[in-house]
Design a protein around this nucleic acid. Sequence first.
DNA 1: GTGATGATAGAG
DNA 2: TCTATCATCACA
Length: 180
Amino acid sequence: MDRPPLTPENFLHPTIEVARWLLGKVLITPIGALSIVETEAYCVDDPACHAFRGKSKANAAMFGPPGTAYVHINYGIHHCLNVVCQPEDVPEAVLIRAVEPCHSQPGAWNGPGKLTKSLGIDKATHNGMTLYDSTGEFWLARGSEISPEAVTQTTRIGITKGAELPWRFYITTSRFVSRR
DNA sequence: GTGATGATAGAG
DNA sequence: TCTATCATCACA
């Protein structure tokens, strides 16, 4: 199975497009290959974005170079995995909300909190790592192309600001999306 | 030091 | 629909 890794310039397109484009791509993890079925975009002008109010220690990774992992904790307990887009100092990212196991794997994959828990991702060890290094434990690879009609675009979930922005994408037929 | 906030999950 | 729960941030 030939899966070339993604490259940093893949994340230099507009964040919304990257969020859409990331569907069907493959996340390689120590416990298997997972295809991405649900994403959300967070942009610099977006009030829901953690970096909207400026740089801080917690969101510093979002200001990093494209293809960096930004892991944040919300509600004190849940880790969320993002892929940083845009050049350095432009805090935009795509939240990976759900993945679908390529093979049958144990664990829950629907929902950003469960996803990172199942993968053993935590902020201390994974925040700021690159996601295009095929020698690492976590990286992104090309997968099947998803046709636009197979994708549903809708509003984001679980936020109180900017909730009307239709910046969430998921594969319509996937059973692993966290919510329709 | 104190209070507010939140990109969730799970229960009712 | 409602809320438990806690890391992090803003402010004093």
